[in-house]
Amino acid sequence: MNFDDLKKEWNAETTEGSNISSDMLKIKQSHTPIDKIRAKMKHEFFYQLAFLVFMVFIPFIAEFSVALNQLYFMTYAIICGFTAYYFLKFYRFYKNSYDMSMDTRKNILWFYYEMKLNIELYKALTYIIVFIIVGFMSAYFLIEKATVFAKILTRLSIVYILLNCFITVLIIGLITELWAWYCYGKYLKQVKKVVDELDYE
């Protein structure tokens, strides 16, 4: 196989009719993994916002006691605080532009670590919110359903209770990891594949 001949043909290849019109410049939707993740995170932001609005009405629907009401709104404020903090970070990620004219290694690594960092942030936010909600649910049972809860506790051994707590944490962790992988993992995997191909010697 003569690569010099191939080069000649390659360079002589004509692309007649290949005219880029100004209409094509109107397209704004990108299809890089980072743009996909940004678009999904934007959607999640609106779902989260709707969830926070819905949370305001829960005490009125569930008719909490005064003590539980105070605890609920403290929990709510903490969730809002964490959500605002993380979404501020996501917003910066959303607005941060990328430079495709860097060399391939720098470009790919930038994409990879930027995506990885934001997926980890996303998981951290999910853990925090879920554990705050679990904490509140425990408080709800201790305050509102104290007698029923006490009865249940007397029938169960401490080992059983601890084991249940441990399994609950594991399940929450597993669901969060699987959800993050389902939503964002494939994009990270694709970029990681290119990083590995570049590093392979």
Binding site: T15, E16, G17, S18, N19, I20, S21, D23, M24, K26, I27, Q29, H31, T32, P33, K36, M100, S101, M102, T104, N107, I108, F111, Y187, Q190, V191, V194
Partner: peptide
């Protein structure tokens, strides 16, 4: 760099942006 990280479009959800492409 674009080709390396480009994600193929989901053909079930292709965006319908109208434009006249004159690419051969």
């Amino acid at each position: 760099n674009t080709a390396l990280i480009y994600l193929k479009k989901d053909r079930r959800k292709v965006d319908k942006t109208p434009f006249d492409i004159h690419t051969d």
